[in-house]
């Protein structure tokens, strides 16, 4: 039950982009083409899930026993940056095809505040390693759903007669507003069943 609740929460009810304002820079910047959006989604799902695992393990086995919780921000950013580096090297050596597909997106992930964001949220809610990982996966899936939908919409704009001064970020933000409005219907979904 907790699994379903966290998954639905991350994807529909508390979508990272539409409800929690996380990962907006890459969401706005990399959504102009479907291929880019798909590639970035793959990379984010991979990194965010396992970065959550690593960060939660770091919290549980190093920070808490040593009473260093106040150093969480520094510790996490270093752990995550190191993890992304490792993933890059590991993929390059072992799964070159996957590296080819995701490689260029991996360095961009460091600018995605959702990765650090979900790790910090996990620690605040003391999710532990297992549920932290699940929450990371749910958040990453939610972010991916959002950027893929948005890329679908944005690809059509190329053919449309849009006033020049509105093109780019203003329009992208207004569109995000309409998408967030559409996702409001999911608020409190399953609230009566799950709690």
């Amino acid at each position: 039950m907790k699994f379903i609740s966290i998954m639905l929460g991350g994807i529909l009810i508390q979508n990272f982009v539409f409800m929690q304002y996380l990962g907006l820079c890459p969401f706005l910047g990399l959504s102009e083409q479907m291929d880019t959006a798909l590639g970035m989604s793959g990379a984010v799902i991979f990194v965010m899930t396992f970065a959550s695992t690593v960060a939660a393990a770091f919290e549980q086995f190093i920070l808490v026993p040593l009473h260093l919780e106040y150093m969480r921000t520094i510790a996490y950013i270093l752990v995550i940056a190191g993890f992304v580096q490792l993933v890059e090297i590991f993929l390059k050596k072992t799964v070159p095809s996957l590296y080819k597909a995701l490689g260029i997106y991996l360095p961009l992930i460091t600018t995605n505040c959702a990765v650090l964001g979900v790790a910090l949220l996990n620690a605040r809610q003391s999710y532990g390693v297992l549920w932290g990982t699940v929450n990371g996966l749910a958040g990453a899936l939610g972010w991916s759903v959002a950027i893929i939908i948005f890329a679908g919409i944005r690809e059509r704009w190329k053919f449309m007669n849009i006033p020049g001064t509105l093109k780019g970020f203003p329009l992208a933000l207004v569109a995000t507003s309409l998408m967030a409005l559409s996702f409001q219907g999911f608020s409190r979904l399953f609230a009566s069943v799950l709690k």
Binding site: G164, V174, A180
Partner: peptide, 22 residues
């Protein structure tokens, strides 16, 4: 006060600024 309102406010502000600059 909710996310849709936030996105819209920033988007429209940027649009107005762009128009003013143009």
């Amino acid at each position: 006060l909710t996310p849709p309102g936030g996105f819209m406010t920033l988007g429209l502000l940027m649009a107005i600024l762009n128009i003013a600059v143009a």
